[in-house]
């Protein structure tokens, strides 16, 4: 196993970066917000991190911290108007945000390098850094799930009316979800920048948005490990089954389709739901006997 990981180190690096973007998507969906803004946050974070290291030679952690902060800022600004919208309207508005970010990236040549992008970004991120970042992200997400914020998110996602009747301020929590999505998106973008050597605005368009969505849909929207598993499957599958690599788009599409139709909770949540049901039935039987 460890040999396999060492042999495919760059692949596993990719999985980790992808799943952080997946978590940016996950956190909003978990709170019942239909945001697709992850790609936009990632773009802002990536350019911030890249510029810091190219222009003023700042160290890795400063760059990542800046990327996460500016992502949070973008999330907070976006959350202000968007928490008032619902469903498809949220989706369309965040899609517009992604397009605005792309076109600003293309227009602001003095800063972003325009269509040619930024090149010669030093590769500052290695597997160890990624593991560290990922464990911090997982720690926060797991504690969040076990405390008040996670409870509020789960109630809002399942039934907004109930949430309100229990005194939960939906708009406030959805704004928090936007900000967290911005932090994770910005962080994911920063990691991309420090791994990819170069950036162009179109790296953060429709395809990135779709893959972030598909990690969450395939992996699961509730359990914290969902997006990680989703990213693992979707990134490794084309590598393990080489002939599939040419049809990456189709494989992605088919898996998304199958997941949403047959396994609407995603791999991890379907399994954990199944397991919980079985355990509950067993304890009930024991209680009766």
């Amino acid at each position: 196993m460890s040999n396999f990981i060492l042999g495919h180190l760059s692949l596993f690096e990719l999985v980790l970066v992808c799943s952080i973007l997946g978590y940016s998507q996950y956190i909003v969906l978990r709170a019942g917000v239909f945001s697709m803004a992850t790609a936009g946050f990632a773009s802002i974070g990536a350019y911030t991190a890249a510029l810091l290291s190219v222009r003023i030679d700042s160290p890795l952690w400063v760059g990542l911290l800046a990327a996460a902060t500016i992502g949070a800022l973008a999330g907070a600004i976006l959350a202000w108007p968007l928490a008032r919208l619902r469903g498809v309207f949220q989706a369309i508005a965040t899609l517009a945000f992604v397009q605005i970010v792309i076109s600003i990236g293309l227009y602001w040549e003095s800063m972003t390098g325009g269509a040619l992008g930024l090149n010669g970004i030093p590769k500052l991120v290695h597997f160890g850094h990624l593991l560290l970042v990922m464990s911090m992200v997982l720690y926060v997400l797991i504690t969040l799930s076990r405390t008040g914020i996670g409870r509020a998110f789960d109630i809002i996602r399942q039934d907004e009316t109930v949430a309100v009747s229990l005194g939960i301020s939906v708009v406030k929590y959805q704004r928090l979800a936007f900000v967290l999505s911005g932090v994770l998106g910005g962080l994911g973008g920063g990691l991309m920048a420090y791994r990819n050597y170069s950036l162009v605005p179109e790296d953060f368009g429709f395809p990135l948005l779709i893959s972030a969505l598909s990690f969450v849909v395939l992996g699961g929207r509730i359990a914290v490990f969902g997006p990680l598993v989703g990213a693992l499957i979707l990134t490794l599958l084309p590598e393990l089954a080489r002939p599939l690599a040419d049809y990456r788009l189709a494989v992605n599409g088919v898996l998304m389709l199958l997941a949403i139709i047959y396994w609407p909770y995603g791999v991890v949540d379907t399994l954990s739901l199944h397991w919980r049901q079985r355990r509950a039935v067993r304890t009930q039987v024991e209680a009766r006997s």
Binding site: L213, R248, L249, A250, G253, L255, M256, L257, I260, I261
Partner: peptide, 26 residues
């Protein structure tokens, strides 16, 4: 299939994105 299950608008967006990718790959 989603209509029959009474799924959310979210599910429809995901599955139409999925099939769009299949068509584009073709």
């Amino acid at each position: 299939p989603l209509r029959q299950r009474g799924s959310s608008e979210f599910a429809a967006i995901i599955s139409s994105l999925g099939i769009a990718q299949v068509l584009m790959s073709a």
